[in-house]
């Protein structure tokens, strides 16, 4: 799998790690059930502290994209590719809304109001 990290990105590093993996999953770089490289490997390859990498991975687990399994490492969850693409678009929507002056609550209201 190929991971891309933008060096000029100003977001916190753990978010960047999560975003890179999210993108890789959405683009089909790794399929459901595939094992991810270990956090230590990711940390050395990306030149990012291993705890920061783990924080990013935990975020993805909470989103339901990754599964942490004892003895099997970190694997891509079932149906993660579709979820991942949706997650990316939700984040884009939140960023666009905040640029236009809408809060998350406004967005939720908008989505509720949409039939």
């Amino acid at each position: 799998m190929l991971l891309r990290l933008d060096k000029s990105d100003t977001r916190p590093l753990h978010e960047q790690v999560a975003a890179a993996i999210r993108r890789a999953v959405a683009e089909g770089e790794c399929r459901a059930g595939d094992r991810l490289p270990s956090a230590r490997d990711l940390s050395t390859a990306l030149d990012i502290n291993v705890n920061t990498v783990l924080r990013g991975l935990r975020e993805l687990r909470d989103e339901g994209l990754l599964e942490f399994r004892r003895g099997r490492g970190i694997t891509v969850a079932e149906g993660a590719d579709g979820r991942s693409g949706l997650q990316i678009r939700v984040r884009e929507l939140i960023a666009e809304a905040s640029r236009l002056g809408y809060s998350r609550t406004d967005l939720i209201e908008m989505i509720r109001g949409t039939t």
């Binding site: 799998m1 190929l2 390859a45 990306l46 030149d47």
Partner: peptide, 10 residues
Amino acid sequence: EGERLVWFSR
């Protein structure tokens, strides 16, 4: 330029 790429495989 300005992008860091890493590739993993097994």
